[in-house]
């Protein structure tokens, strides 16, 4: 590893964070859709949905947070795509720096940007009546799961960010990921779904992640759910990282 790796990554991270703080509207935009879903489900559909818990916002929030991240990483891909297309990526690659710093700065920026969006969404949820008795440890566990999930999706986002030929192509990959929570336990209990749909819903990553976060918020024992959730996150992370690095090597060779 290059001796300047951490220093160079910090400098490039500072650059990307400036981009974010100078266009905070892009982060706000990524929170509009999840907040709209939250309003829609709580105040329009929510009355007709039976979840077995009193407070539907409490039930809904974990899934909404995952949608927030899925929508946020489309900007990660977009930012990387702009750097590729604009030529600044090549400028950095031609400089005597730790070359992988360029990519890592984008990944860390994605974490920060998504953290901001998540804070915004949680604040709105609090206004809408979200309440939890979760202690510091439970919150830390939730933050850890969300961070791992963001990291996994960010490495997925790096792939189109590096290889897309248009801005639309760079961000379109996130639509199926945004849609995934709808076929999970995020909005309604899976028990009401017909057989094959239920089988899919109960065995896809979103359900275990949503259930783990929900249990942490409601102070239920998390049991094996949290390990399944973490396994999904780590598994996606590793596979996405391998493909992203392959795409990266194709770009720099």
């Amino acid at each position: 590893m290059n001796k300047h790796f951490f220093g160079d990554t910090a400098v490039l991270l500072g650059r990307s964070l400036r981009h974010i703080t100078r266009s905070l509207d892009t982060i706000i935009t990524t929170t509009i859709m999840p907040i709209a879903f939250m309003l829609l489900f709580v105040y329009v559909f929510g009355g007709a949905i039976t979840t077995g818990t009193g407070n539907y916002v409490n039930y809904l929030l974990p899934g909404i947070l995952l949608i927030t991240i899925a929508s946020g990483i489309s900007y990660t891909a977009f930012r990387l795509f702009l750097d590729m297309k604009g030529g600044i990526f090549e400028r950095f690659q031609s400089m005597p720096i730790a070359r992988s710093s360029v990519l890592w700065a984008h990944v860390l920026t994605s974490l920060v940007a998504n953290l901001i969006s998540i804070v915004v969404v949680v604040l709105v949820a609090l206004l809408m009546g979200f309440r939890t008795g979760a202690g510091v440890l439970a919150w830390l566990a939730v933050a850890g799961i969300l961070m791992l999930f963001t990291l996994a999706l960010t490495w997925i986002a790096v792939i189109p960010g590096l290889s897309a030929t248009s801005a639309d192509g760079a961000s379109a990959f996130s639509y199926p990921i945004i849609f995934l929570p709808f076929i999970s336990s995020a909005f309604v209990p899976t028990a009401t779904m017909p057989g094959p749909v239920r089988a899919f819903a109960e065995n896809q990553p979103v359900t275990s992640i949503v259930n783990a976060i929900r249990d942490l918020f409601t102070q239920q024992p998390v049991g094996s759910t949290i390990w399944i959730a973490l396994a999904w996150c780590v598994g996606i992370l590793i596979v996405a990282y391998i493909f992203a690095m392959a795409a990266y090597r194709r770009k720099i060779s």
Binding site: R18, H19, R22, G87, I88, E90, R91, M95, P96
Partner: peptide, 20 residues
């Protein structure tokens, strides 16, 4: 790595950062 210490690239494909 030594080559990259020795030159700078500018022009058509090496851009500046528009937001900064």
């Amino acid at each position: 790595a030594d080559v990259r210490e020795s030159f700078s690239l500018t022009g058509q494909f090496a851009a500046v950062d528009e937001i900064l």
